[in-house]
Computed example of a mutant assay.
Amino acid sequence: MSTGTINFFTSAKPYGFITSDETGAEVIFYTVNVASDLTNKLSQGVKVSYELKTDNKGVKSAQNIQIFKNENISDPYEAATGIDLGTTYSNETWTKPS
């Protein structure tokens, strides 16, 4: 499995692009290859794992896409996006709620 970050996706289009962590190359994915329960969780900046497959026309695309889970972070959204929703901005400093 490869890993990467979604750099383009909108539900209005049947495809999106992932930037590969390994190569930095853009990899296309098609929403038909994404589990329906994951489609609404995909957005720019989300870390994913995927398999790179070649179709019968020789076109490579990401398939078997899963949201990447960072074992060191307990919040799945933070693990996938790197965004800590528990952090608030107050008085020009970032503070963690108690």
Rank of each mutant, 00 (worst) to 15 (best):
M1S: 11
M1T: 13
S2P: 02
S2Q: 15
S2M: 14
S2T: 07
S2H: 15
T3K: 14
G4W: 01
G4A: 07
T5Q: 13
I6T: 00
I6L: 00
F8E: 08
F9Q: 02
F9N: 04
T10H: 06
S11C: 05
A12F: 01
K13T: 00
P14N: 05
P14L: 00
Y15C: 05
Y15T: 05
Y15N: 03
G16A: 04
I18N: 01
T19I: 15
T19F: 05
S20Q: 01
S20N: 11
D21W: 12
T23Q: 11
G24T: 05
G24A: 09
G24W: 07
G24R: 04
A25W: 05
A25C: 07
A25N: 15
A25F: 10
A25V: 11
E26A: 11
I28L: 08
I28P: 04
I28K: 15
I28N: 07
F29N: 00
F29T: 00
Y30T: 05
Y30C: 01
T31D: 10
V32C: 09
N33Y: 12
N33P: 00
V34K: 07
L38G: 02
L38D: 07
L38T: 10
K41A: 12
K41N: 13
L42E: 02
L42A: 02
S43E: 14
Q44E: 14
G45N: 05
V46Y: 03
V48K: 02
S49C: 13
S49Y: 09
S49F: 08
Y50F: 15
Y50T: 03
E51D: 15
L52E: 05
L52W: 01
K53T: 11
T54L: 02
D55E: 04
D55C: 06
N56E: 12
N56K: 13
G58F: 09
G58C: 10
G58Q: 09
V59K: 15
V59W: 12
K60F: 11
K60L: 10
A62C: 13
A62H: 12
A62F: 12
Q63D: 03
I65S: 02
F68T: 01
N70C: 01
N70M: 02
E71V: 08
S74Q: 11
Y77F: 15
E78K: 14
A79T: 04
G82V: 06
G82Y: 08
I83N: 06
I83G: 01
D84W: 09
D84C: 12
L85Q: 13
S90V: 15
N91D: 13
N91W: 03
N91A: 10
E92P: 06
E92T: 11
T95E: 10
K96I: 11
K96P: 01
P97S: 08
P97N: 11
P97D: 09
S98F: 11
